[in-house]
Amino acid sequence: MNALIDDVRSEALFASDLQRSQEPTAEVIRRAVWAMVDRFGETGCAELVAQEYGEHPDCAIGRMNWARDAVRLAFAA
């Protein structure tokens, strides 16, 4: 179940306006994830990710790798 939750969180962070260059704290990452899920829902975040992969696949891969790593750190138990 954690893998599914991590996927949703990663998609939400990916879809957010938060940037790696901002060097966000764990708290900022968690707030961004919750805000995106509240605003777009799980499906909406996934749709935004799919759209970005379709339009900018070269950039999307790096952003998703960052989002996954950031989510793992921000939501570590």
Rank of each mutant, 00 (worst) to 15 (best):
T25I: 03
T25A: 12
A26G: 15
E27D: 14
V28Q: 15
V28H: 08
I29S: 06
I29F: 10
R30L: 09
R30K: 15
R30D: 08
R30G: 06
R31P: 01
R31T: 13
A32E: 15
W34L: 07
M36W: 04
M36L: 10
M36F: 06
D38F: 09
R39C: 07
F40M: 05
F40V: 08
E42A: 10
E42C: 02
E42D: 06
E42M: 05
T43H: 05
T43S: 08
G44Y: 03
E47Y: 09
E47A: 12
L48D: 03
L48P: 01
L48F: 05
A50P: 00
Q51Y: 08
E52K: 09
G54N: 13
G54C: 10
E55C: 00
E55W: 02
E55G: 00
H56R: 11
H56V: 01
H56M: 01
H56I: 00
H56E: 05
P57S: 01
P57T: 02
D58W: 03
D58M: 07
C59I: 12
C59S: 14
C59Q: 15
A60N: 01
A60F: 01
A60G: 02
A60V: 05
I61C: 06
G62V: 02
G62S: 13
R63V: 03
R63F: 01
R63K: 14
M64S: 02
N65T: 09
W66T: 07
W66P: 03
A67T: 07
A67H: 03
R68I: 14
D69F: 07
A70G: 08
V71K: 06
V71C: 14
V71S: 06
R72S: 12
R72K: 15
R72D: 10
L73W: 11
A74C: 01
F75T: 09
F75H: 08
F75C: 02
F75L: 07
A76T: 04
A76D: 10
A76N: 07
A76V: 06
A77D: 05
A77P: 12
